[in-house]
């Protein structure tokens, strides 16, 4: 079990993580969800004892990270957000270095590197120098470090950034199988689909604070009942905002990107959508597209933080 207790990290005057308290159970995938700068990476760096907390404690299996950092590090592995590879060494040598540092037996090392690189469609690239790889390939090698290591606690920081869709799916499957083998996974992400697909539980971080925690389903259940409508409007978005803002049927409006797209929170889309469309047409506004959705983790994040990821 991983326990964070009132964990705080400040950099000069900036509070990166503030009084974070959290428990991650053995064998679960815990997702830390938040935008860039929310404090996800800082939290993970403290877990790995790369950064010292300003105050508070972290314990992994009752071992205090501050008191026995090396013992904790022997239990875990981290795949960084930005791939950290020695550009002068080949893909295979980078993974061998990682396996050696984690004291993997020689026969296991060779066999796992081969199996993982083959799985990630990178076996043919094993002799390429890491510096010559594309961004996506580097990211796969970064993730591969943990797939080879199979640590007791695996920490993934944005594991599928830069990856194409087939590679993302492969990495997700592999993370799930790591969990099935008994690893506890901590996953930092700002991708809703990733968080929803992989996490047993989620923590929503915003400006260094844990705003909410729970399973994706329970977090969505906490939202006010209703539907979400996304409308793309051609024309004056300001008048649409003013007009829709006055409608009692519309609970909340969020302007999205592109700038003429709006997200509306309504009670029932079926009954309210015709009223909204009629009103917009009456105002002389043309609607280019309409999408009706179930609330997603995106909406959960908005609900708890007032921000859009």
């Amino acid at each position: 079990m991983i326990e964070f207790e009132k964990l705080t990290k400040t950099f000069k005057t900036v509070v990166a993580v503030s009084e974070l308290s959290l428990k991650v159970d053995d064998g679960e995938i815990f997702g830390l969800l938040g935008p860039n700068g929310a404090g996800k990476t800082t939290t993970l760096m403290m877990l790995c004892s790369i950064l010292k907390p300003t105050s508070g404690t972290i314990r992994v299996d009752d071992v205090d990270v501050r008191l026995e950092p090396q013992r904790v590090r022997s239990l875990l592995g981290i795949a960084f957000q930005e791939p950290v590879l020695d550009s002068r060494l080949t893909v295979e040598k980078n993974l061998e270095f990682h396996a050696d540092a984690c004291r993997l037996p020689r026969d296991q090392k060779k066999q796992r590197i081969r199996e993982v690189l083959t799985y990630l469609d990178m076996w043919d690239s094993r002799t390429q120098k890491a510096g010559k790889l594309s961004g996506g390939m580097k990211k796969k090698v970064e993730d591969a470090k943990l797939f080879v290591q199979e640590p007791r606690v695996a920490i993934f920081d944005e594991p599928t950034a830069y990856l194409d869709v087939p590679s993302r799916l492969k990495v997700w499957k592999r993370i799930e199988s790591l969990k099935d083998q008994g690893s506890t996974i901590m996953l930092a992400t700002n991708m809703m689909d990733e968080a929803e697909r992989l996490s047993n539980r989620l923590g929503i971080l915003s400006k260094g604070k844990l705003e909410a925690e729970g399973s994706p389903a329970s977090l969505k259940d906490a939202l006010p009942r209703g539907d979400v409508i996304e409308i793309l409007i051609a024309g004056n978005i300001r008048s649409a905002l003013d007009y829709l803002g006055k409608m009692v049927e519309v609970k909340q409006i969020i302007p999205l990107k592109p700038p003429n797209k709006l997200r509306l929170y309504v009670g029932h889309a079926e009954t309210n959508l015709p009223l909204i469309m009629e009103a917009l047409v009456k105002e002389g506004l043309r609607v280019d597209s309409v999408v009706v959705k179930e609330p997603s983790l995106d909406d959960v994040f908005l609900h708890y933080t007032g921000e859009i990821l």
Partner: peptide
């Protein structure tokens, strides 16, 4: 500068 030191520091090496 490249962050490799962070990586080394995350490994079970003193």
């Amino acid at each position: 500068e490249s962050g490799y030191l962070n990586y080394l520091m995350s490994l079970p090496i003193s």
